[in-house]
């Protein structure tokens, strides 16, 4: 049995366009893999396919040897950080971070939220609203939120692209540190090779599928 994440010949189509054509790769437990590629190569699509948000035309996705085909997104246990955070605007920071923790008793939830906010360098911001945060802060909260339920793996879809270069570099370093500290298995999509080197253990390049 191969532990960790494994993709075999994954193919995704939108109508007549092929977004992914026979992609195979493996991510070992605790490994951070960066997915590099030009736009249109299907990086985001691959991430979404792993999360269960895109149906596969062909191929399989396995976690610890188990086929995930029949498992819906909310049961896969893969966290996701989006490019613009996607924090829930009607909830406070604390409730955002605690969203995936409903299986824990209230006291444990609060404790975990506090711990994670400290981890991402934003202690004490539980009661702020997402609209009151800066771009960098919002992305840190998004990271905290997705790490809170201790996911099997974390999928990051260009999480730093919307930030300015100075902030990006600082946050990339922080991110690398946090992912290592928490031993998170992660797939990190970016178009910036330097960032990929900073954050990931291994860089994989995705080439666009042949036309048609």
């Amino acid at each position: 049995m191969v532990s960790g994440l494994e993709l075999r010949d994954v193919t995704v189509r939108y109508g007549d366009t092929t977004a992914l054509d026979g992609v195979s790769m493996a991510v070992a437990p605790g490994e951070v893999v960066a997915l590099l590629g030009p736009s249109g190569s299907g990086k985001s699509t691959l991430l979404r396919a792993i999360a269960g948000l895109e149906p596969l035309v062909e191929g399989t996705i396995l976690w610890d040897g188990a086929d995930l085909a029949a498992v819906p997104t909310h049961k896969r246990g893969f966290g996701m950080v989006f490019q613009d955070g996607q924090l829930f605007p009607t909830m406070s920071v604390g409730r955002n971070v605690g969203y995936g923790l409903t299986h824990l008793p209230k006291a444990a939830q609060r404790a975990r939220v506090t711990a994670l906010l400290e981890l991402v360098g934003l202690p004490g911001l539980e009661h702020r609203r997402p609209t009151e945060l800066s771009g960098g802060q919002a992305q840190r909260v998004a990271l905290a939120r997705s790490l809170a339920p201790s996911p099997h793996a974390l999928l990051l879809d260009e999480p730093l692209s919307a930030l300015d270069p100075g902030l990006r570099r600082r946050l990339a370093d922080d991110l690398a540190l946090i992912l290592r500290e928490t031993h998170t298995t992660a797939v990190y999509v970016t178009h910036d090779p330097e960032e990929a080197e900073r954050v990931a253990d291994r860089v994989v390049t995705l080439s666009p599928p042949p036309a048609g």
Partner: peptide
């Protein structure tokens, strides 16, 4: 993507 974020956090539809 907002709803999708919720799904990745373990919330059913």
């Amino acid at each position: 993507r907002l709803a999708q974020a919720g799904a990745t956090l373990g919330a059913g539809p």
